[in-house]
Design a protein around this nucleic acid. Structure first.
Lengths: 332, 332
DNA sequence: CTGAAAGCGCTAACAA
DNA sequence: TTGTTAGCGCTTTCAG
């Protein structure tokens, strides 16, 4: 920057002013400076500016795994939204395991990010003490009850119930569940399972605990395995509620391979409405949690916090939408 | 840091030494310093260190869209590999359009990233003049012929040919292509299309130009649309080569909806081997370009460049693998 | 093994 | 409208 200043015959501060669009500069000076910048191929050193300002223009996004379509699509939406605010996004993968989630979240970031969007999978009330980040944070996806942190939430309960009620309306009574995490009292799996049980109960249908199958990571492969186990158990069922879409797609694969017709023999519903759900065979009935809106709302909220808004923490629930498709309705 | 030093009764430099694991420190001093760090909840300011060292520990990854499964899976692998080197990853989305690709790549990064991994979709020889980044760069995915830049490449030509030959061996002769970019002479679409034509020619099969259907973005939706157009054209075909997996999955959807049996009436093959290809109905025959290895190799190479290796630029081709599945073989 | 001094590149505050 | 001074928090000499 000194070089540029010398080259243009002005002071460094003037160069700084030009770079930052400071309005009160004579047109002539500005032109001279810009010419010098160009001539020298100068690029401002952001680290230096950060050091001065204490802010970096970077926000962090912590998600379990980018290779899961839901999180890939979420990250896409977050990056898009961040760009609107002139922010860039650093992504950290937490894996799907609770210990690593805590490690990652508590890793010192050295003032490198101005804020953090955090999409936890298995954390709950008991862990909130651990959430000690210096930068503002917005939690994505699920509620950690009573925690004094901003949340932008999926409507897990209402969404799951809507899916279950849809299956009940179709006359299904033996609805298997895929992807439960036995022992976990908190986290997405528990929330959705509880909502499922509650919906059944509300409609006077007994909760078939023997039809709940676990899957640690919510991948297609684990969905397929859980379905194998379900079939091997010999227990009767006429529907499958998978706790997310990838599990559902793995289930569809396994059911089809075993010659079961979907939805005639077994209806299948998922959660997330990933792009794939519209194009699978059969297309997948699923709950759309409002990804794009969650991303946008969360970034907006985070930006507000970063700029000093310290009003009471907010809990925003995004509207869900149930998409009914062939995996429950058949080919109309 | 000054505070910590005071608290521990040492000089700032000693604190710095402790933080950086400098070996020659008395155990007692180290303990004192660590205690002070803990007591004050001190976090090193990375921006300041960057300013001094000129390096940030961040690498950039520029991909078209994270919501495309291939790039989600690639990003996952890159982040994983970067972590091995203690680097974090900033992701930039270029969209799938050539102008934006150039814009993004030339955006000044203000010394914010130490290196850049760049996965272009539509660039070629003519654009290499534009690639003027100050930080070292490694190109991912495809070769831009003769450019003096490091490449870690998908074996597009051999991979595509293998897929085409597989279809030919099955007796298919009228192989439609989905996803071409008419007018583009460079970029992934052109490379794969040319390889397809070459494979046909080598086997004495005429290239059916009327069976090439374009799709700008390689999404499921565009694959479905292209397939609609193909069917609407009334032209006969017994196989579809989609230039990537998402297109193929969109095609399968449309073909199935029109009552065509796969592979009996139409065999379908894709490219990328995304996770979904193993679980779709039918499972998808596809070319695995070696994602994980590409990510690892590229990060290793980039790190070498960042640490001053300025030997001749390298062009590394990752080994591909053809996975034959139900969409061409049927259910054995 | 530890400390003191200087400076990385930028900008806020003030002065001219 | 532009220049000067000082300092953000760290590390790199070089001494002790």
């Amino acid at each position: 920057m000194r070089d540029v200043a010398r080259h243009a015959g002005v002071s460094p501060k003037t160069v700084s002013n030009v770079m930052n669009g400071y309005p009160y500069i004579r047109e002539e000076t500005r032109t001279k400076v810009l010419a010098a910048i160009d001539a020298l191929g100068y690029q401002m050193n952001i680290s230096a500016r950060n050091l001065k300002s204490g802010r970096t223009g970077i926000i962090g996004l912590a998600v379990p795994e980018l290779s899961l379509p839901y999180f890939g699509e979420l990250a896409d939406a977050v990056i898009e939204a961040a760009e609107q605010h002139g922010l860039t996004v650093m992504i950290e993968q937490t894996g799907a395991d609770r210990d690593r989630e805590l490690t990652v979240i508590n890793r010192p970031r050295g003032h490198l990010v101005d804020g953090l969007l955090y999409s936890p999978l298995g954390l709950g009330q008991e862990d909130i003490g651990q959430l000690t980040t210096s930068a503002p944070m917005v939690l994505l996806g699920e509620r950690i009850f009573h925690s004094p942190v901003d949340h932008v939430m999926i409507d897990n309960v209402a969404g799951t119930k809507a899916a279950v009620e849809h299956l009940l309306q179709l006359g299904r009574r033996r609805i298997a569940v895929l992807g439960v995490h036995p022992g976990e009292k908190v986290g997405t799996a528990a929330i959705r399972y509880d909502a499922y049980a509650e919906a059944l109960t509300e409609h006077g249908v007994p909760v078939p605990e023997e039809l709940a199958f676990s899957a640690g990571k919510w991948h297609r492969s684990t969905g397929a395995e859980a379905t194998q186990a379900l079939l091997a158990s010999g227990r009767k069922f006429d529907a499958v509620l998978a706790l997310n879409d990838t599990l559902a797609l793995g289930a569809i694969r396994t059911l089809t391979k075993h010659g079961l017709r979907i939805p005639d023999d077994v209806a299948v519903a998922g959660f997330d409405n990933i792009d794939e759900a519209q194009y699978s065979t059969p297309t997948l009935t699923t709950v759309d949690p409002g990804r794009t809106q969650i991303a946008r709302t969360a970034v907006d909220l985070l930006v507000r916090r970063m700029t000093g808004d310290d009003s009471e923490h907010e809990e925003i629930v995004a509207p869900y939408e149930l998409h009914t498709r062939e995996s429950t309705l058949g080919t109309a």
